[in-house]
């Protein structure tokens, strides 16, 4: 299927090269990690190379395909190792300066970091913050608080007043939840709503927003029907020429069985101070209470340094200590993460 899509994509772009505007841009990331946790993959890893094919069909419509080359890790299912896949592929039509809709596979409008395929070149942490990772939902299954991708329809509204921008997104479709057990394919329906306000002030850019995600899935949490997840998020991003600050808070509720319910709360913050235009040391803190009724929670604290070799190339290193408190057992994990990220 992938081969057909790629073949069609390349044929269509070459045939219509004269009439269509085709741009290719993207992102590459290579990591080196080491950890005190024996379950964590260590060493070098070509995490991903993404080629975004952006084809302007008319003045108001375009087709975008994000082709991802991924090395995979020892912990991904064997079917996902060393994959080439279409991460996103959608048709977009702009109805006016304010309205547009997309049809296809898009990033779910949820949270601050999920607006890009990988945040590492823009935001400070190397690895995805704790609340964005899979959480334990039942004894046997993990799941994220949201689906990274949605296949369906997405409606976007954007308006502005001088240097203040507000946009809202609604997406309806099938979620594509990636859990530790791999990608679930038999998801039911998902709905995500996100609104965000951006204010480009004279010295500080403020980005505040909320997002909500719900998904019903008859297979997700062990094959029992009628299960549903609600997840709410709010975020605040502040950025100036001198500092960067991000804060995100999450609250989620899971129906994990006919009567069982689980609530979780989590959040993280990152604060970086620009020593120069290109060197930013930062502090990171995250906490996740997996089940509000239980005494199970994880927290992470870390320090890191990001250095832009050029605006398009960033190299980062960080130390993160994660304390896991589960079932009256405590465990501390030290992770050293470095990354080289390039946009082109």
């Amino acid at each position: 299927m992938l081969k057909i899509i790629l073949f069609t994509l390349f044929i269509s772009t070459s045939v219509n090269a004269q009439s269509l505007k085709h741009k290719i841009y993207g992102y590459a990331q290579m990591d080196w990690n080491t950890s005190s946790d024996s379950d964590t993959k260590e060493g070098f890893q070509l995490k991903r190379v993404n080629l975004i094919n952006d084809i302007l069909l008319t003045n108001n419509s375009r087709f975008l395909a994000d082709v991802e080359f991924e090395e995979g890790t020892d912990h991904t299912p064997s079917s996902n190792k060393g994959t080439v896949k279409v991460s996103r592929a959608f048709y977009e039509h702009s109805l006016s300066q304010h309205w547009k809709f997309q049809a296809g596979k898009v990033l779910t409008p949820y949270g601050l970091l999920n607006e890009t395929h990988d945040f590492s070149i823009i935001y400070l942490p190397v690895n995805v913050p704790l609340p964005y990772r899979s959480q334990k939902i039942t004894a046997s299954r993990n799941a994220r608080l949201y689906s990274k991708y949605t296949t369906g329809l997405s409606f976007n509204y954007k308006t502005s007043n001088h240097n203040r921008f507000w946009d809202a997104q609604l997406s309806i479709g099938n979620g594509s939840q990636e859990s530790d057990e791999g990608t679930d394919v038999n998801n039911d329906k998902s709905v995500a709503v996100k609104q965000q306000f951006k204010w480009y002030g004279d010295s500080i850019t403020t980005n505040w927003g909320t997002s909500h995600f719900t998904e019903g899935d008859s297979t997700r949490y062990g094959g029992i029907g009628g299960q549903r997840m609600w997840s709410h998020n709010t975020f605040l991003g502040l950025e100036s020429d001198n500092f960067q600050f991000n804060l995100e808070l999450f609250y989620s509720k899971f129906n994990t069985g006919l009567t069982a319910k689980q609530e979780s709360a989590s959040g993280y913050s990152v604060l970086g101070y620009n020593l120069s235009d290109s060197t930013i040391p930062y502090l990171y803190y995250a906490q996740s209470k997996i089940d509000l009724r239980e005494k199970e929670w994880n927290s992470s604290f870390g320090i890191g340094l990001a250095h832009n070799i050029s605006p398009a190339v960033v190299i980062k290193g960080e130390w993160i200590r994660t304390d896991q408190h589960q079932n009256f057992e405590e465990k501390a994990i030290d992770d050293w993460n470095t990354t080289l990220a390039i946009s082109f």
């Binding site: 841009y25 992102y27 975004i52 952006d54 975008l64 994000d66 996103r88 959608f90 898009v106 990033l107 607006e115 890009t116 395929h117 990988d118 070149i121 823009i122 605006p311 398009a312 946009s343």
Partner: peptide, 11 residues
């Protein structure tokens, strides 16, 4: 530059 990267990678 970073704003452009964010906008382009978010499609």
């Amino acid at each position: 530059y970073k704003n452009w990267i964010r906008l382009s990678l978010s499609a």
